[in-house]
Amino acid sequence: MLEIKNLHVEVAGQKILKGIDLTINAGEVHAIMGPNGSGKSTLSYAICGKDGYEVTEGSITYKGKNFLELEANERAAEGAFLGFQYPVEIPGVSNMNFLKTAVNSIRKYKGEDEMAPVEFLKLVRAKAAELEMDPEMLKRAVNVGFSGGEKKRNEMVQMAVLDPGFSVLDETDSGLDIDALRVVADGINRMRAPEKSILVITHYQRLLDYVVPDFVHVLADGKIVKSGDKSLAMELEKQGYGHLGIDENAA
């Protein structure tokens, strides 16, 4: 489904990713763990097409499409979703208007008609209710004045509405209390399906208690240094990155 081969990425002339190979099949949940500065966020941005993340070597293919030839919005329309570590505040744009524009942009890309307003409203309300978001928040400006937990919940609502085939969640768990963490985990678990795949990027093992991954990879200095199943995450939790010979403070 998602195939990353020998991926090298530079940011502002600095080599960050130095040859990543990763294949995520339909129905699988993968977790990438690693210390700060290992290139975790860079990997998520490279997959989703952020400007300034220059792929100097290698490839990213999703459902047979060469992602490197697509703009960020085209990758989203093909089914990729990025859950942000720091969701952006957008004053003056209501959540509802933002979601409607997003849904219809993707439909436009696919050559489909816009969603009927009533149908859209029903969809958004249903997803907000499932994730226990106060419907009033849908009227508010995107993420403006939201607490950390509310912002992450908002990411989960967006993901649920857009219903992506492949989701990358970039440290979605950082800075959350246990209740907010459960909301995020619930949002991710709702996306689990035989035809969908998920990549969870996290610094801590904590989230993986709730979202149990099929595979765990350890990223250090721009490379995957170890892969395993969920027991690898537990091993890291107990023994730390140092145990694998990784300098925790490399950044």
């Binding site: 400007d51 989203a76 957008i90 524009t101 997003a102 942009s105 436009k108």
Partner: peptide, 14 residues
């Protein structure tokens, strides 16, 4: 630029 990428990552054309 961050806001633009956020919107594009949700499918919005530039």
């Amino acid at each position: 630029a961050e806001a633009l990428f956020y919107l594009k990552s949700r499918g919005l054309y530039l």
